[in-house]
């Protein structure tokens, strides 16, 4: 079973976000981490590989400094990695990103591609289906459980009121949610071995993609403004302790929350 897991490096979740003059997230200003949702994808990929054997490759599109996050994933148990890094990719929108990832995946051998559900910086959650579409493969999304056997992948697809069981023949593309597992810590031995693992770098030219079709130049969407979201809360104090439960139930029911 050859598995590819896709990872994005995102700005440290706890850091304050800043924007560049052209309204892109200023990634240089804060430390990068493995996109927290992708940690579940990486854990799932490692666990499936441990169970089924084969080779696990990590695929990442990002700046050269993403190597640090890639080495961490290697310390967790990823066998090797491909980093697509090219200055022309800066400012790529999600369609361009999906095209680049799909082109790289076509150069790799895999039975299944695993993604995290979304990234914590842009939070669109659409790359997985876009990549699947470009590759002409089925996409199984929002998996809270993944079973690979008999030439097919079966997932529990979570939604508001429960889950559906969905399956697809291999090869296919899967995205996982954060309830699927608990990501492991990098083992101390894994940390010492991570540097020795193979990391291949691709430029756009290696993928046969024209630079003008990606990055800011090729973006079909343009950010016009970025505003801080402010939340205002209006607290309500209900003082009759004996009837508090009733009041709360009533309050929630009126808003169709229960």
């Amino acid at each position: 079973m050859n598995i590819v897991v896709c990872m994005k490096e995102t700005p440290d979740t706890t850091a304050e976000k800043r924007f560049t003059a052209d309204l892109r997230l200023d990634r240089a200003a804060v430390a990068g981490v493995i996109n927290p949702y992708d940690e579940y994808g990486i854990e799932e990929a490692i666990a499936q590989k441990e169970k089924l054997g084969g080779e696990l490759t990590l695929l990442c599109m990002g700046p050269a400094r993403a190597e640090e996050s890639i080495r961490k994933a290697m310390a967790m148990g990823v066998d090797k990695a491909v980093l697509i890094s090219d200055p022309a990719l800066e400012g790529s929108d999600l369609i361009a990103t999906a095209r680049v990832l799909a082109a790289a995946l076509q150069k790799l051998t895999f039975d299944i591609v695993i993604f995290g559900q979304a990234s914590t910086d842009s939070n669109a959650g659409m790359i997985v289906t876009a990549v699947a579409e470009l590759l002409g493969l089925p996409a199984l999304t929002w998996a809270s459980k993944l079973t690979i056997e008999g030439g097919k992948a079966t997932i529990k697809r979570s939604h508001e009121t429960g889950y559906d069981v969905v399956e697809a023949p291999l090869p296919c593309v899967v995205s996982v949610t954060q309830v699927i597992n608990e990501p492991r810590y990098p083992s101390l031995k894994g940390i010492m071995q991570a540097k020795r693992k193979e990391l291949t770098s691709y430029k756009l030219a290696d993928l046969g993609i024209d630079a003008s079709s990606v990055g800011s130049a090729g973006a079909g969407s343009k950010v016009e403004a970025a505003n801080r979201v402010t939340l205002t809360r209006t607290p309500e104090i209900f003082k009759d302790a004996d009837r508090a439960a009733l009041y709360i139930a009533d309050y929630l029911e009126k808003r169709k929350l229960i």
Binding site: Y185, P186, I191, A194, K195
Partner: peptide, 15 residues
């Protein structure tokens, strides 16, 4: 070194 930073970080998070 990168390894030392990662060992430190992992031990810190685990603890």
């Amino acid at each position: 070194s990168e390894e030392q930073q990662m060992l430190q970080q992992t031990a810190r998070e685990f603890a």
